[in-house]
Design a protein around this nucleic acid. Structure first.
Lengths: 219, 219
DNA sequence: AACCGAATTATACGAACGTTCAATCAAATT
DNA sequence: AATTTGATTGAACGTTCGTATAATTCGGTT
């Protein structure tokens, strides 16, 4: 159709992505989504079956891109490392870097997705409900990769480190605007370049921390 | 009224806290809240004015407790430090420790609050809207305290470190259950004792990490 | 030229929503 | 004993919600 540059199905996902991120899943009506997308109300049920189906389609199309890039970078690392340990900073970058680049240069949709997924990731409703099956296999691969990057660390330390990394990453790409309020606008939560430059060494140092402390106490 | 052990106003806040955390603000109706609280529908508007007023009351009563404890611990640190620098681990513990202890031993309400605030903190709607004014003054004090604990680090590094700490903390107390799924139940996101033991050295090491290297954005 | 199936339109349905308000209750105060 | 006041009840308001369905459009195949 000539209603917009893209087809109806894509426009619906784009608008829903933004509005879900702004107001939450139940905070937006299908009427508002279809109106802002220039489509008829019934098109959501036609293309996605149900409102929840629309949400899942919105999330799935981004996770697939993200997972593919993460896995590809990790496989490159594994190929380059041979039998040796993986470089820790590179594993962190392989996980967060794709998200960083897509959020920076992937268009407005990725910004909306970042805010949406930061809310959804913190609610059990979405996690338990199949949507995370698109994410979990990749996450498991990265936990194993972090263990390979930190061969002297216990599994426990690596698992919790990955947990802290998840929280940091989700909050980072949510771009909540809180840091602006706290610093009077001097630092901006949308300044992903600055944040990414700091977050990789920050998380890598955290991963290495627990054992360093144990070693100090033992020696 | 012998409907419950506590008065209606408190019961409404307790039930709303849990349901808002489970389903989001717009995912729960006042009818469901009042029914589960054993109260009449009109009581929400009577006690809190509006549905949103109920949400704000729910969040405010917890933030006030949290802020008071955080500030008290920080003032103790400042008194003990005199003119010297603050011990970094202690500042981290002064910020996260109260939340950890309340979430562990403060009753089920604090668990619900943790999940609720992790969603709300990632949505601009709540942050821009006055509710964060209860949190921001304390956050500003802690950013200053972190600078005092890291006199050789740039303000920029400290600010971003605090940002990463916020994300880690919010995700930690959301207890999303994701780490169970990723580890087959071997590690549990409700094991706050283990998480807290790891998170303080993790974040402290991140704060101390050397200045961010200038990283080129590659694709 | 007739046809087909996917996409779109227009409309309707029943249910649930937040909010309001007059009436009633129950103590504490006068 | 009468009165006041905050808390609670029960019912209703108009609106909006997600979903379903029959009718219509239209380019590509027959």
């Amino acid at each position: 159709m000539a209603r917009g540059r893209t087809d109806t199905k894509t426009r619906l996902m784009d608008v829903a992505e933004k509005l879900f991120a702004d107001h939450g899943f139940d905070g937006v009506s299908l009427r508002r989504i279809t109106t802002e997308a220039g489509a008829q109300l019934a098109m959501v049920n036609y293309h996605f079956g149900t409102k929840r189906g629309l949400l899942e389609a919105v999330i799935a199309r981004r996770i697939e891109v993200l997972s593919e890039q993460r896995v590809r970078l990790l496989e490159d690392l594994e190929a380059a490392a041979g039998d040796g340990p993986l470089p820790l900073e590179d594993v962190v970058a392989a996980f967060i870097g794709p998200y960083y680049r897509l959020s920076s240069n992937g268009g407005r949709g990725w910004k909306n997705y970042g805010r949406l997924v930061a809310q959804g990731a913190n609610s059990r409703a979405l996690i338990q409900h199949g949507l995370s099956n698109l994410f979990d296999p990749v996450a498991k691969r990265f936990i194993a990769a972090f263990q390979r990057a930190l061969p002297e660390r216990s599994e426990e330390q690596v698992v919790w480190g990955f947990h802290f990394l998840m929280g940091t990453m989700l909050y980072m790409f949510a771009e909540t605007g809180r840091i602006e309020k706290l610093t009077g606008g001097k630092y901006r939560s949308g300044d992903l370049d600055a944040m990414y430059a700091h977050v990789v060494p920050f998380l890598a140092a955290g991963f290495r921390a627990c054992e360093a402390q144990v070693q100090r106490q033992a020696s």
